[in-house]
Simulated assay, not measured.
Amino acid sequence: MASNDTNTTQFNDTNNFDKSHAPNSVIHYSITAAVAMGLCLIGIVGNIIVFWYLFFRIPRTKYTVYIINLAAADLLLLTFAAILMMVNINTLVGSNPDFEGIVVFYTFLQSIYDLSLYSGMYFLTAISMERCISVLFPLWYRSHRPKTLSVTMCICLWILGCSESLTVNLACPDNDFRNQTEVCTGVQIMRFTLSICICLPLMILSSVTLLIAIKKTFRNRYPSRLYIIIIAAVFIFILSVIPFNFLWFLMYFRLLPSIQDTLGLYFVSILTAALSSTANPYIYFIVGRLWKQKSSQSIRDVLHRAFKAQEDEKEEIKCEKENTSSSNNSNARNSTSSDSHRTDNSNYTNTENIL
């Protein structure tokens, strides 16, 4: 996921981009858009599967509530990113780039795209922070956590993401963005503060805490799959999205003067957004299959195992150890009984020979 703070500004500026002087750039942008669309289709399939199984087929937990909403946000982002790319390709090489209502249509697409982008970032921050608190303060967390916290948090985060998206896209239109008005500057600083100064440090802090927890428990047992999922999702998000937040902020203050640089940043940001949202469901599938030697596993079993609570994982490991121990004891008893039987037969044979 990546942030496109310029609304329709950057891409509408392609009207000033002379294609005849830079045909290679147009081809590169079109190829990038096509790759992003293909990536979006792959991610849409994965997120639909995750959403379906977690919502309808798997018992809901406090953590799967966040993942369901994250999958919904990723699904929205990928769908509208693919539509945005189609509109952008039409603007670059289409026969009717300036169709009637394009500005309103593009603003609508960008608003939903930003809504899913910001909400997904907040869901990742919330689930990583909640898991971090459960590790640092386990007793307090178990006794004071409200049962409806996950649902309440998700509703509030959707509202926050919607408010931020509408503010960015409506309070900072094209002319205000170009002229760097006070309102538009305040909006950009607000967005930058939320993503870089608040969400990024919280995600890094929680990920480091979970890594330390994994290191402490790794010698005794396998780490919680949920820890690995959170760390992997946050890591991919930080690598693919956060750098472009800095670049967009620099671009707003005209530190990227070339229109080619701005357009390249725009296309690459959407491509990395699609990559981050596409990776999440496949992270769940891969982690859910870890430490199991069975070749045939249903999607439901894989997802259920991926988001199993840590307490359930401990119980599962305990049962496996007990089964292994009982199996070893049974084998030992069978071996002892067999040895005893052979000894009795040997003694009986020796007695017969003596007689």
Rank of each mutant, 00 (worst) to 15 (best):
C184K: 01
C156W: 10
L275C: 09
K318A: 14
G186I: 03
K19H: 15
W52N: 12
Y348K: 05
N280M: 13
V268A: 13
Q297R: 13
A233H: 05
L39T: 09
K147L: 12
F80T: 02
L70P: 01
C156N: 15
M1T: 03
H341Q: 12
L41K: 01
I283L: 05
N175R: 10
C319A: 15
N280C: 10
L77P: 01
S330F: 14
I31G: 11
N280P: 03
L355V: 15
D114V: 07
A34S: 13
H21I: 07
N169W: 04
T167R: 13
D301M: 12
S338V: 07
L263G: 05
K147V: 05
N12C: 04
F244W: 10
F244V: 02
L77H: 10
Y29I: 08
R57Q: 13
N69H: 15
Q260N: 14
N90F: 07
T185H: 02
K147W: 00
S335E: 05
F253P: 08
K321S: 08
I58G: 06
T272D: 06
F56H: 03
S116Y: 02
S116Q: 02
V65L: 11
L211D: 01
V103A: 12
Y53Q: 07
K19Q: 15
Y66G: 00
V208E: 01
E313Q: 09
N347F: 11
T6F: 12
L202A: 09
V26Y: 09
M251R: 14
I204P: 00
A306G: 10
L166A: 11
D339A: 15
L211N: 09
I159K: 09
S30E: 00
W248C: 03
S327Q: 08
V45Y: 12
V287G: 00
I354S: 15
F123I: 03
R219W: 07
R300F: 06
D301K: 10
N323L: 14
M121K: 01
T262H: 01
I159C: 12
T185V: 06
M37L: 11
N334M: 08
K62D: 05
E164N: 11
C184V: 05
S269H: 01
R145W: 08
